[in-house]
Write a protein that binds this DNA or RNA. Structure first.
Lengths: 263, 263
DNA sequence: CGCCTAGTGTTACCGGCGATAACACAACGA
DNA sequence: TCGTTGTGTTATCGCCGGTAACACTAGGCG
């Protein structure tokens, strides 16, 4: 790249941006003195700026704390493998669980910021990022045909148990922590969301045909009409490579009533 | 009781003691405005005393908050059966779990005070009370010879999962809470600490969830509407397991299970 | 060139917070 | 009767989160 392009701009050679310095100072205070050590004064002093500067970059205190939490979480995950996925989705989830717990124990103050004070409807950016990744990991298990509950339910179970475990461990003196605990709880939840069964064959056609074959057992969950409808949709996925669209439009209800209505 | 015994003492006929008034005022503020609404000024004003009076009774702010949490928790448990134990220790634990979660959802601010900000080595009196009761419930299961792990490990697993679940639910909008979640997580942990084998999931659930996960790939076979419809039917098959509530617990342990590599 | 605008950091300040010192006063026991 | 103890008060401190108003710089544009 020719020198001429390297025009002088304000921040090109500045060692670290003000925002970065504030973030780092706040993170350091957070780790060393806990949540209560992160005050506007302390941060501004440690970052070498005046207090109002903080508000210029992070609208208020909670904005700063949220940014610190997100930054710390991202950094940690980036340093770990993060995106390295194997071809065993269950093992990947296991690794994700362990990494999550490890982060909480390595950075308890960050972790408490993320999960310690839930507010209905709100989710910190860091927690959201973590939840997204969990959802992805669980979905891969579902795609492998090894999930026995909804993806959403499985993710919620795993998150509840995992975060509860981490918070519990944070509250226990390191020497007194039960070494059995993390592994056992993890496997308990894992067994509950996966069957112990070996992975089913990949590809949706197999699942469609298998499900079609088992349709008769679903009387307590689906009405007769729903079973019939589902059967037709599964036929489309499992068998004939028919053209798209229109074929389904015609099919009326199998018979007039279609209203067994259990439930 | 003869009147002569009712000597006049300062507080005999006083409607409520100062300590009680402060406690009640703080609890009300906590429920109505959350943790941040409980300030020395607000409490003292609501209780009709001067701020320093609070320090006379509860050495500092955290002392007051601890007392409020403990008081609220005790009151709640007292109003519930609390000590009513049946002759089925596992069912008693189940009830205890449900009561615990219910308390957290009914009094989220109290609950966050108890579990939201763990500090290594410290345990709030309220949390300690709850832990003691859990220990007792688990010990009864052990006495019945139905525990496959240490009492301590079992209690820690249950506590981690239960408090994590409650914190998770507190953070989710009431309308969007997964009704399956609490029961499933509870049974998963219960099965892991007692030797019970998981109830055989109907074979179709895995196929249903797998197919759901692969719905996105079916664009060439199904219209968007059909995909949505199919997705809903698949959720019904993957989500709920016929009988609800306790039914799933009974199943004996056909195989040792429970020991698949806790790592 | 000279003016304007946007971005950034500053000084000075506000109301509210947790906490404490020093005092006022009632009840009780020697 | 007089100290002691328990309880609640007045007055005040230092720190907090947050904001208004100003100062300076760089870039855009006539």
């Amino acid at each position: 790249m020719p020198i001429s392009v390297l025009r002088y701009h304000r921040y090109v050679s500045e060692p670290t941006s003000t925002r970065r310095r504030i973030l780092d100072a706040a993170a350091r205070l957070l780790e060393e003195h806990g949540r209560d050590g992160v005050t506007t004064r302390a941060v501004s002093y440690a970052a070498g700026v005046q207090p109002p500067t903080i508000y210029r970059h992070f609208t208020d205190m909670s904005g700063l704390l949220g940014a610190v939490a997100a930054d710390g979480f991202d950094t940690y995950l980036a340093r770990k493998h993060a995106a390295a996925l194997s071809d065993d989705p269950v093992q990947d989830l296991r690794d994700g669980w362990d990494t999550h717990v490890e982060f909480g124990l390595t950075h308890p103050a960050h972790y408490l910021l993320m999960y310690g004070r839930p507010v209905p409807g709100e989710t910190s950016p860091a927690a959201q990022r973590s939840a997204d990744r969990l959802h992805l990991l669980v979905e891969r298990i579902a795609a492998a045909g090894r999930l026995t509950v909804t993806v959403e339910t499985a993710a919620a179970m795993i998150h509840s148990a995992g975060s509860g475990l981490t918070l519990h461990l944070i509250g226990v003196d390191p020497d007194e922590r039960d070494p059995e605990l993390p592994g056992r709880l993890r496997e308990a939840v894992l067994r509950a969301v996966t069957g112990d069964a070996p992975p089913a064959a990949p590809g949706y056609t197999q699942h469609a045909t298998a499900l079609k074959a088992a349709l008769g057992e679903t009387d307590d969950l689906l009405t007769a009409g729903e079973q019939a409808l589902l059967g037709e949709l599964l036929d489309r996925l499992g068998g004939s490579r028919g053209g798209r669209g229109r074929s389904s439009a015609a099919a009326g209800a199998p018979e007039g009533g279609a209203e067994a209505n259990p439930c």
